[in-house]
Amino acid sequence: MTLFNIFGAPPFPTWEAYFEYLYWFLFVATTPFFMLSAIGLGMWFSKRPNLFAKQNIFMWIIFPVSLYYLIQYQFFDFRFEFIRGDYNLFVFPYSAFLVLLGIKLIPKRWDNWFAKAISTIGKSTYHILLTQILYFSVVYSVYGDHYGASILGIDLSYDLTIYLYLIINWVICVPFGVFWYYVDFKLRNYYMLYKKNKPRKEE
């Protein structure tokens, strides 16, 4: 596959042969083996997630390289011929650095309404995801696309209106997802309590 990416794919006699090649290429490119660098970083930092520890000093070297690669990739269309997509060993150090920085700077305990709100949203992420799937399926069915769109309209020019639509999407999906989680949580607790107190039938 790497040779094909460097020197180009060989000529295909039929469309079926091309699609078979494409299928296996995508199969290999999306396997966990391409994520081993991210898995390795996660396992390494699990022992001591301190950005300023001696064993993590290498992050201060590879982070600028990763940041430079992302800038070139995002804004100047730079591509390696043998690496496709933005999930690779040149990207993961940037994310890992931000995670370590967050662990270092964010307080261990927050006892205020903001922390409680973030905690509630964190617990509701699955229900928020389900809400987004339902919401954007409706948006897609109405406008034929979901990029730059909200339930109120679509903006394919990607001007400042797109940020308004983004806020609208948040305002709709996040509260509904949290409410869904709250209802699901209450119903689950009610069911468990009912099941626990349900009288047993005589044999």
Rank of each mutant, 00 (worst) to 15 (best):
I62W: 08
G144Y: 00
E203P: 14
I128D: 02
E16T: 05
V139E: 01
S37W: 00
D86F: 06
P93K: 03
A96S: 14
P10T: 03
S66H: 02
I128N: 07
W15I: 11
L164I: 12
F7S: 04
F33L: 15
A9Y: 04
L130H: 07
V65C: 02
I118K: 13
M192Y: 13
I62Y: 05
D77T: 10
Y143V: 00
I168N: 08
V91P: 02
F92T: 05
G148H: 05
T2K: 09
L152C: 02
N189F: 00
W110E: 15
K123N: 15
L22E: 06
I39D: 02
P107K: 15
V138H: 06
V174H: 08
Y143A: 00
Y194G: 08
Y23S: 01
L36R: 10
A38K: 13
W15S: 08
Y165S: 01
P64K: 02
F136K: 01
I83P: 05
K123T: 12
V174M: 10
R79Y: 09
S157Q: 07
I106N: 10
F52N: 10
V174S: 11
K116A: 13
S46F: 12
V28R: 15
Y94S: 07
P10F: 06
F92N: 04
F7W: 12
G42R: 14
I151F: 09
K54Q: 03
K108S: 11
Y94N: 05
K104C: 03
N5A: 08
H146L: 10
N197H: 11
A17G: 01
Y147I: 13
K186N: 04
Q55K: 06
R48H: 07
P175N: 08
V183K: 13
I167N: 09
G177Q: 03
S66F: 01
W44E: 15
Y143M: 00
P11S: 09
T2Q: 10
G85D: 10
W15C: 01
Y182A: 08
P10Y: 12
V91K: 01
V178R: 04
L187M: 06
L51W: 08
P13Y: 09
P64C: 00
I128W: 04
E203K: 14
A9R: 09
M59G: 11
Y147C: 07
Y68S: 12
L164P: 01
Q132C: 01
M1E: 05
A29W: 10
Y69K: 07
F45C: 04
Q55S: 11
I6Q: 06
R79S: 12
L134V: 13
A96N: 05
F63V: 01
F34M: 14
I162G: 00
L160Q: 07
S66N: 04
P11M: 04
G40I: 12
G102W: 08
W113Y: 15
D145A: 11
F4P: 07
W15V: 09
